[in-house]
Design a protein around this nucleic acid. Structure first.
Lengths: 204, 204
DNA sequence: CGCTTGATGCAACGAGTTGTCGCATTAGAT
DNA sequence: ATCTAATGCGACAACTCGTTGCATCAAGCG
């Protein structure tokens, strides 16, 4: 590696700065996220931040990258309900995590920076892939219609939780996560998330 | 009324300003919503805005009040599925409306101004009341468990649509609305939105 | 019609913020 | 021990923000 190691000054600075970004977002939201404020909080000169990150969005982007790079694990409980519940609880964990909450709010506020959008897109792609494995297994067990769309399921699991966080400001607890999982299971079993007939093979 | 009439200069100024607020929000988002920008766009001197609205949040609040005061109508199609579909399509209409979209994004970005939060709370209270009527009728028809929680249903209908708008940036179309309605219907019928046993009446 | 009153236009301001620069200093690698 | 890149430092011009005093205007009223 040509990069300085984790113990190097550069890495230490980055850690301190990105942590300061989260702190600042938590306290003041995206509106209060200025380069100066982050610099003061991190104990780093603001010129350094301008040189390395350029803009406020650069800072947000780096913090977001660090956060979104966590791996998505696929549950395998043996039942659709169990798997969906695990996924909902993972989502809950992100949404109640300090950094997760700060970053999600910031992303929504940041309007649509292209680079940010790309990170979000990549995250959901991975998430959908993970859900697809669950769905496939459930279909093999006969718990679900074979043409169930994983993207629909993926979105539906998280939606009520994001709704509580961003829109209605309601509490985020495990009961909410479990209810969301149960609702998705019921809807999926009922065939609501079935893909529209693609090439009319089974038409009369 | 001691207020100048709708044709008065004051009223005309207010209309022009609030329209400018929506335009500005649409183009730049909450981050770009400055008093100066709105003043320029509305063709009104900024001192006037500071005198009447005080701050940027005052402007947003007034625009939001004007928008949120629209009445919520209760559908009555005779079936649970029909009613839920109507509700989902109403939500879709708000979420695809220019002003609605601008204001919803702004509210999420505005962090939590107390007065804004109060308006949101009031909106959802009315919405929940409306859904409660639907749910009650459906329960009377035997389409739903009697102890179905209207707030759960209310939240679940809108959630996938808000999710598409705010989080995943996916398209908002009537297919999405109808799917959401169908999913909620299936989940509600399955008893997912049933209130937890309150005073243990039916326990062994 | 002319008068009164409150709302608006106008220009200027001081305070604070933002992003950049040249140069000195330091930490880490070789 | 030395070299290099990263950081610290202070100053700066350009910009934004909110306020103020005064002139002007529009709407209602007799």
């Amino acid at each position: 590696m040509s990069q300085p190691r984790p113990g190097g000054r550069t890495a230490r600075t980055r850690t301190a700065v990105l942590e300061a970004v989260i702190d600042q977002l938590t306290e003041t939201g995206y509106a209060g996220l200025s380069v100066d404020a982050v610099a003061r909080r991190a104990g780093v000169h603001k010129a350094t931040l301008y040189r390395r990150w350029g803009t406020v969005d650069g800072l947000l982007l780096d913090a977001l990258t660090l956060f979104a790079d966590r791996s998505v694990t696929t549950p395998d409980t043996g039942t659709l309900d169990g798997d969906l519940r695990d996924i909902a609880r993972s989502a809950l964990a992100i949404l109640t995590d300090r950094a997760g909450q700060a970053l999600i709010r910031a992303v929504v506020s940041a309007g649509h920076d292209d680079r940010v959008a790309e990170i979000i897109r990549a995250f959901w792609t991975r998430h959908n892939t993970m859900v697809a494995r669950i769905v496939e297994r459930a279909a093999d067990r006969g718990e679900l219609p074979a043409d169930t769309d994983p993207a629909d399921v993926s979105r539906a699991i998280g939606a009520p939780l994001y709704m509580r966080l961003l829109v209605t400001a309601e509490p985020l607890d495990s009961a909410a996560a479990d209810q969301s999982a149960a609702a998705v299971a019921a809807a999926a079993r009922a065939g609501v998330f079935t893909r529209p007939a693609a090439h009319g093979a089974e038409l009369p």
